[in-house]
Amino acid sequence: MNTSDKTKAHTEEQYDHVQSVFESIASKYDIMNDILSFRRHKAWRKFTMKQMAMKPGDTAVDLCCGTCDWTLSMAEASGTGQVIGLDFSPNMLKVGENKVRAKHKEDQITLVQGNAMELPFEDNRFDYATIGFGLRNVPDLEKVLQEMRRVVKPGGMVVCLELSKPTWQPFKGIYYFYFQKILPSLGKLFAKRYDQYKWLPDSLALFPGREELAAIFRNVGLEHVKAYPLTGGIAALHIGIKENRHV
């Protein structure tokens, strides 16, 4: 097996493993998000929506949409614009579909099972491309960002809300102790899943820090990149703009 084949096999193995993780925790995903983030994820998303400043009629694609909380927030902010939620986990999408129906947003929101590294959408289609708490789970995050940049219109916005790495002590030490030692035990207690929640801190260990991710945004061709630390740096919001050829 040559290097290219080995890389492809590793990518496929990682994709399958992550998919199996989220398939198994889908029914408990929302309550675990509340518990593990102390409900801060709701405040982070609210801050993100403020920075995005969506206008009526704006369109969006929400990658790794999971159970569709952010997808619904964008649909409500847009009012009439079409919003597509994409995820690779059928079980997560089933939970999201129930939420979409409960909010009577079936005509505005379309849910698609797919791969964030190979988006099934044409170039320059959306005003926004977003990914929330999903970028650290993909085998090739740079490829995902390239795809997000491809499918937004010139002047469109690429948005990533994700866990990050605190840089100052003693908060950094407390955070890593919680994430590596306490979080998996909470997963076992509330979701009956230890191994899956043990994998989540492992995924963060390999994920770039706030400034590193901002540099990757620039490397894929995004402009006016902004990076906001949230709650002491345990999460971060990154925003980049696709160049506007008309300016």
Results as ranks from 00 to 15, higher is better:
residue 34 D to V: 12
residue 59 T to A: 00
residue 37 S to M: 02
residue 48 T to H: 08
residue 53 A to F: 07
residue 41 H to R: 00
residue 44 W to R: 09
residue 40 R to D: 02
residue 30 D to T: 07
residue 51 Q to S: 11
residue 50 K to L: 04
residue 58 D to I: 07
residue 42 K to Y: 11
residue 57 G to N: 10
residue 46 K to Q: 14
residue 31 I to L: 08
residue 52 M to T: 03
residue 40 R to F: 03
residue 55 K to P: 01
residue 43 A to R: 14
residue 41 H to Y: 15
residue 59 T to N: 04
residue 40 R to V: 05
residue 31 I to P: 00
residue 35 I to C: 05
residue 43 A to P: 00
residue 39 R to G: 04
residue 61 V to C: 10
residue 52 M to F: 10
residue 58 D to T: 04
residue 46 K to M: 14
residue 43 A to E: 04
residue 57 G to C: 01
residue 28 K to S: 15
residue 59 T to H: 06
residue 56 P to Y: 05
residue 32 M to E: 04
residue 57 G to I: 00
residue 51 Q to T: 09
residue 29 Y to D: 07
residue 47 F to A: 10
residue 29 Y to E: 03
residue 62 D to E: 03
residue 26 A to W: 02
residue 36 L to D: 10
residue 50 K to D: 05
residue 53 A to Y: 03
residue 53 A to V: 08
residue 54 M to Q: 08
residue 55 K to L: 06
residue 59 T to I: 00
residue 32 M to Y: 10
residue 42 K to V: 15
residue 42 K to R: 15
residue 35 I to T: 11
residue 32 M to F: 07
residue 33 N to L: 07
residue 28 K to P: 04
residue 49 M to W: 02
residue 35 I to Y: 02
residue 58 D to L: 08
residue 30 D to L: 07
residue 58 D to Y: 15
residue 62 D to R: 00
residue 44 W to M: 02
residue 34 D to F: 10
residue 41 H to F: 11
residue 28 K to R: 12
residue 30 D to R: 10
residue 38 F to M: 11
residue 53 A to P: 09
residue 43 A to I: 15
residue 34 D to Y: 03
residue 48 T to G: 12
residue 41 H to Q: 01
residue 58 D to G: 03
residue 55 K to G: 00
residue 45 R to V: 14
residue 39 R to M: 12
residue 25 I to Y: 09
residue 44 W to T: 08
residue 40 R to H: 05
residue 60 A to Q: 05
residue 59 T to D: 06
residue 36 L to V: 15
residue 38 F to S: 02
residue 28 K to W: 03
residue 27 S to N: 07
residue 25 I to K: 04
residue 29 Y to S: 05
residue 38 F to W: 13
residue 48 T to R: 07
residue 33 N to D: 08
residue 57 G to E: 11
residue 53 A to N: 13
residue 30 D to H: 12
residue 46 K to N: 10
residue 28 K to V: 06
residue 54 M to S: 05
residue 36 L to H: 03
residue 56 P to M: 05
residue 45 R to Y: 06
residue 27 S to F: 02
residue 42 K to G: 02
residue 40 R to Y: 10
residue 45 R to F: 11
residue 33 N to I: 02
residue 39 R to W: 05
residue 42 K to H: 07
residue 55 K to A: 09
residue 29 Y to W: 13
residue 34 D to M: 05
residue 42 K to L: 13
residue 38 F to V: 03
residue 33 N to S: 13
residue 35 I to K: 09
residue 30 D to N: 09
residue 31 I to W: 12
residue 41 H to V: 13
residue 60 A to P: 11
residue 60 A to R: 09
